[in-house]
Amino acid sequence: MKRLMLALALFLGVQAVSNAQEVHDRKGAHRNMTPEQRAEKQTERMQQDLQLTDAQKKAVYELNLQSAKEMKAARAEGAEMNREKFKAMHEQKDARLKAILSADQLKKYETIKAERMNKMKERQGDKGLRQG
């Protein structure tokens, strides 16, 4: 019986480490995306969520590509980069996006954006509780 319990505990430990590695690998893959890959992924998500027209999809892709390149350059600056600069970049992108989307699409975009921010804040709050 002890051997069975030991084997089960060993199996569960290995499984937990394996799952943690998979999550880490997925996050790492996201960080290593090129600006083009990021723009394509963002545009596809927006296409699904907002049902963009072909012209809108092309304009949104160009905007996402420009934004991804700016973000990559800003991250390369490293220590000089701060939250305020990232926030300004996002606000500028949103302002340009308003010229591309219809009123209904913009409303839906803002709703989705708020939901994602809330989920992110919840995850960050959970991390703080677990660390303490």
Rank of each mutant, 00 (worst) to 15 (best):
D94K: 13
A76I: 01
I100Y: 00
N64L: 04
K41S: 08
E70Y: 02
Q37G: 11
N64K: 04
H24D: 10
V17K: 05
E44V: 10
S67K: 04
H24G: 05
K27P: 03
L8F: 09
R38C: 04
E62N: 09
K58I: 03
S67Y: 13
T43V: 05
G28D: 09
A79V: 10
R116L: 14
H90I: 08
V23K: 11
D104S: 15
I100N: 00
K108V: 08
N19H: 14
Q48V: 03
Q105A: 09
E84A: 14
K98A: 14
K113G: 04
A99Y: 02
E22M: 11
R38M: 08
T111Q: 15
D94R: 13
R31A: 13
E110M: 13
V17N: 07
D49P: 01
V14S: 10
R26C: 03
A103V: 09
A29Q: 15
Q48G: 08
A88S: 13
T34R: 01
E91I: 08
E77T: 10
L50D: 02
A59W: 00
H24W: 14
A74L: 08
E44C: 01
K27F: 15
R116Y: 07
I112H: 01
H30S: 14
E91A: 14
K87A: 15
D54A: 11
A74T: 06
A79M: 12
R31T: 10
H24L: 15
A9D: 08
I100K: 04
D54V: 14
E110C: 07
Q105F: 04
M71L: 12
L8C: 08
A99W: 01
A114C: 02
E22F: 10
L12H: 01
K93I: 04
H24E: 11
Q66S: 13
Q56H: 05
Q21S: 12
L12T: 13
Q105V: 11
V60C: 01
R45L: 10
Q47H: 10
E115G: 08
L106F: 14
L101Y: 02
E40S: 02
E80H: 12
R96I: 00
R45G: 06
R31D: 08
E77I: 12
E40Q: 12
A7Y: 06
K57H: 06
N82R: 03
E110K: 09
N64H: 05
A88G: 03
Q105I: 06
M71C: 02
N82C: 01
R96L: 09
A88H: 03
A74Q: 12
N32D: 09
K87E: 14
Y61R: 03
T34Q: 01
R38K: 12
N32S: 08
E70V: 07
